[in-house]
């Protein structure tokens, strides 16, 4: 190789690396600005409103997302395992189709549908209907992710289990689920965090705001609070406070997601 060629390669390398670094800076800058504003304004809002209001706001969101996750994550994971392990069957194919279709539907449409079907028809218990809307966002995503993860388990591993005398469902339960565990746990945290921050499916459920107040003397779901308060100039401080709490909650959850992604023994 001539030294001219080596020099050219070095130049190209330096330019490419510089350009990539610039992209990262451009990406980081708005994030940093937004975070700074969020922390300073949010802290001021929280101090103004008193710490107790933050606790109440958290309670509403965590309860909504918590109820939705508790129902939808096991359902999604179980469904996803079934979809992959029993593929070929009609039920599995229908399940794959439904999970795919539902996870493509915009959240606002899910909210509208739940509103039309449940809230309009039954009327009461709307807090639970809010959780139902979130669950409808979580379950298909989890099913999709789980089925994907299970598909990446080599067939030879299942064959080994069968040759040891395992039934199909034991193979799924003890071997396949072990392999997909980390990926699925990570997805569960991320999906739950996203649901906690989702506004769109809850927009129609104004009643969703009364229930936690009655039960816990808490407040609205956080995303709704942000959405509402942001549109009223007098309530901006509250919006900032709610947003800060929301981002913190999401941050904590994504920490758990990252921890879940590290399998045992692989430190």
């Amino acid at each position: 190789m001539t030294s001219a060629l080596i020099r050219r390669r070095r130049t190209v390398d330096a330019v490419a690396r510089g350009a990539a670094a610039a992209c990262v800076v451009l990406l980081l800058a708005p994030t940093a600005i937004a975070l700074t504003a969020l922390v300073t304004e949010g802290a001021r809002g929280i101090v103004g409103a008193g710490g107790w209001s933050v606790v109440r706001a958290c309670a509403g969101t965590l309860m909504l997302a918590g109820i939705a996750s508790a129902v939808a994550i096991p359902l999604g994971v179980g469904g996803g395992l079934y979809i992959n392990e029993y593929r070929g069957g009609t039920l599995a194919r229908a399940g794959r189709w439904a999970a795919g279709a539902l996870s493509e539907v915009p959240a606002v449409v899910i909210g509208l549908a739940v509103h039309a079907l449940l809230v309009a028809a039954v009327g009461r218990f709307s807090f639970l209907w809010g959780a139902a809307a979130l669950a409808l966002m979580i379950a298909p995503t989890m099913a999709h992710t789980t089925a994907d993860a299970a598909r990446s388990v080599p067939e030879s591993v299942r064959e080994a289990a069968i040759a040891l005398g395992a039934s199909r469902w034991r193979t799924t339960l003890f071997v396949v689920s072990r392999v997909v565990h980390a990926r699925v746990a990570r997805a569960a945290w991320i999906t739950a965090a996203r649901a906690a921050g989702a506004t769109a499916p809850l927009l129609f459920m104004t009643e969703a705001r009364d229930w936690p107040r009655q039960l816990t003397s808490g407040d609205d779901a956080l995303p709704l609070q942000v959405f509402d308060a942001a549109s009223r100039p007098d309530a901006r401080a509250g919006a900032w406070a709610a947003a800060l709490v929301l981002v913190t909650v999401a941050g904590v959850m994504s920490y758990f997601a990252r921890r879940a992604a590290t399998p045992r023994g692989h430190t």
């Binding site: 080599p154 591993v157 080994a160 040891l164 072990r178 392999v179």
Partner: peptide, 15 residues
């Protein structure tokens, strides 16, 4: 269980 099997490609259970 009475007739065990070993395969060409080692297939220990991952994870």
């Amino acid at each position: 269980q009475r007739v065990g099997m070993i395969f060409q490609r080692p297939n220990p259970f991952p994870a």
